[in-house]
Design a protein around this nucleic acid. Structure first.
Lengths: 232, 232
DNA sequence: CGATGGTTTGAGATATATCAAACCTCGTGG
DNA sequence: CCACGAGGTTTGATATATCTCAAACCATCG
């Protein structure tokens, strides 16, 4: 019995395209790995040697400039795919924000396997198209939205994506209350703002009664309507 | 003899994955269409009914906010693929910037065809992965770069992507001189700036001798090194 | 406790936006 | 052929959102 049989993302990750024989084969070329918060799996600009499925935890994708400015260009959750298949270099680093469990493959092995399993490539294509849609929506935020709109949009998105997709029946209601997997600085790096501006917007939203901040990392959405309106 | 046989992007578009029989079949479900500058093929938020290959011309992908702010989230060139296969709605509009020639398919027809031709899906996956890389790189620009860096980066990118990929031998050298397919306002919409800021940066780069502006739409790069340095 | 790292708050600086006017360029019609 | 008009562009003056720098604050952990 392979590790895949008990995998909690088995039915949501791209692996769901495979039957048990194929899964067995895939299992032989992959291995599990645990990442501590802050630990990186892939570095910006390095050769694309690894790809992986996220089993548990949250990771950031980030790029930066020479002089140290950073931009988080993506956030991945359980069942998401990471790394750059069919390409030579990875344009961004991948770093765990929480403790994270991933299922890692050598890119060469994965590429070869994928080319022989069109259903897998199809799942990967679907995921990539979805990610591209999401990324483009984020460009509107970075290019055109004010600090208040950015922070509000961010909290709405978080409340939607952090839903623990445990039980299949749960109809993915956005969360009213959640723990941010980001520090204030990381929120700033997602939104293209400074830490101070993010902090001020948090306190403003709180003072206006739209959210509550029980602790540094926790957020409660008190007035979702209002927050959506603020998100522009 | 089908229209595909004489297609100038035949060897670069995703169609290059098909043999002549398959191409013949694809040809029966597609049709050519010419778009005038400013004409749209797809509207933001509408049902995803069309997909297409770009044969000639330049088109923009754009989204906007309720109150009329616009952000261009992508620019496509000959051989690029447009539209949202395997999805219900398109998150952005697609509008011709120059006169454009496209090869259009009903999304349903294309989806069905693609599912039966893994090599085509593979090409599409490669293209989508590349586009995602490019889009994420643009996020760094939108989130963290100054106006001067944005305009310089933009001109460098233009000089690289506008290369007329006519003859196969041409080793894609960046252009020293080219005609922008954008108005100043559209440049602003790509870069997340205002038209005035873009204009001022253009004149600054000109006065510093890095570029020349023979006419409104033309740009000559005089000092590529310097411009790359300005791009951050 | 006292140190440490992250966060909030404050005061001031600055890049970019906004508003407004002048300026080209190019096509049209007298 | 030239005057005119319209759209897009540049330039100018001012406003303002966000950044920067700095200090106070607060949780957490030895």
């Amino acid at each position: 019995m392979s590790a895949c049989d008990t995998c909690i993302v088995r039915n949501r990750a791209i692996c769901s395209s495979l039957d048990s024989n194929e899964l067995e084969m895939l299992n032989t070329i992959g291995r599990r790995r645990i990442l501590a918060p802050g630990e990186s799996l892939i570095w910006e600009g390095e050769d694309s040697v690894l790809v992986a499925n996220v089993i548990d935890g949250v990771l950031k994708l980030s790029t930066g400039t020479e002089d140290g400015r950073e931009q988080i260009v993506g956030v991945v959750y359980p069942s998401d795919f990471i790394g750059r298949p069919f390409g030579s270099t990875s344009g961004h680093g991948v770093t765990a924000l929480t403790e994270a469990k991933v299922c890692v493959f050598s890119r060469r092995d994965f590429d070869a396997f994928a080319r022989e399993h069109p259903a897998l490539e199809h799942k990967l294509l679907q995921r990539t198209l979805g990610e591209l849609d999401r990324t483009r929506r984020w460009m509107l935020l970075l290019g055109r939205k004010s600090a208040g709109e950015r922070v509000s949009s961010f909290l709405i998105e978080m409340s939607e994506r952090l839903v623990e997709q445990g039980c299949e029946g749960s109809h993915d209601q956005p969360l009213k209350r959640f723990t941010l997997p980001f520090s204030r600085q990381q929120v700033a790096d997602v939104l293209g703002l400074t830490i101070e501006t993010v902090s001020r917007q948090f306190t403003r939203l709180k003072s206006e009664g739209l959210i509550d901040l029980p602790s540094r990392r926790e957020v409660a959405i008190l007035d979702r309507e209002g927050l959506v309106a603020e998100a522009g």
